[in-house]
């Protein structure tokens, strides 16, 4: 059989195998949904708690992010055991989100230590949200995430024209557009692929 293996057949084998692995990446939709929903709950929660003066320190609701972090770590460990292949796309995405995570951690630390005044920082936060979201969309060639990233930047500009009291709601809107909607679209994309 191998003697008859022609140049044409060689090319067919190469093409079909490369197509099998091309543009392949892991289904990260659970992570987009996890962070999307948690940030949505925290931002809307913080807004409502503050508006109706329900508690003394409404911003403490953001501690829920630590719960999300623990859930994410458990999820990633489980996922790592399941994954059979690691593509370059997965590796790049990992680096993008790790650097974003480190940036966010350092920023919360610095802002907390210096002024503790988060409200002035929300527009910058939106600009930062846009970076990993847009990059992930570009690397995966997944349009909803690219649009999500651009919307984060657009929403950062809108903060110039509205009252600071509504910044938290802008953050909520940003995570719906940038993470929650793309998260569900990605989930259905993978569901269709597996059929």
């Amino acid at each position: 059989m191998e003697k008859d293996f022609s140049v044409q057949q060689s090319l067919e084998v190469i093409e079909s195998m490369i197509n099998q692995a091309k543009n392949k990446f892991n289904n990260d939709s659970p992570l987009y949904l996890l962070w999307g929903w948690i940030v949505l709950i925290c931002s809307v929660g913080n807004y409502l708690l503050y508006k109706f003066q329900l508690v003394e320190k409404p911003h403490l609701i953001w501690l829920l992010l630590f719960v999300a972090l623990i859930v994410q770590i458990i999820y990633l460990i489980k996922q790592h055991k399941k994954e059979k292949v690691k593509t370059y796309i997965d590796e790049i995405l990992g680096y993008i989100w790790t650097s974003f995570g480190i940036t966010m951690f350092l920023i919360s630390f610095v802002v907390g230590q210096s002024s503790g005044n988060w409200i002035n920082f929300y527009p910058t936060l939106l600009i930062l949200y846009g970076i990993p979201t847009f990059l992930s969309g570009a690397v995966m060639r997944f349009l909803p995430l690219k649009i999500g990233g651009i919307c984060c930047w657009a929403l950062a500009i809108t903060t110039l024209f509205i009252s600071k009291n509504y910044y938290l709601l802008i953050i909520a809107l940003a995570v719906i557009i940038a993470w929650i909607i793309p998260g569900y679209l990605m989930k259905s994309f993978f569901k269709k692929q597996s059929i």
Binding site: S10, V13, I14, S16, M17, I18, Q20, A21, K22, K24, K84, V85, K86, T87, Y88, D90, E91
Partner: peptide, 14 residues
Amino acid sequence: LAVMSLLISVKEAE
């Protein structure tokens, strides 16, 4: 050749 074509497209595979 199939194995090599697969591995050239990914970082590592089981």
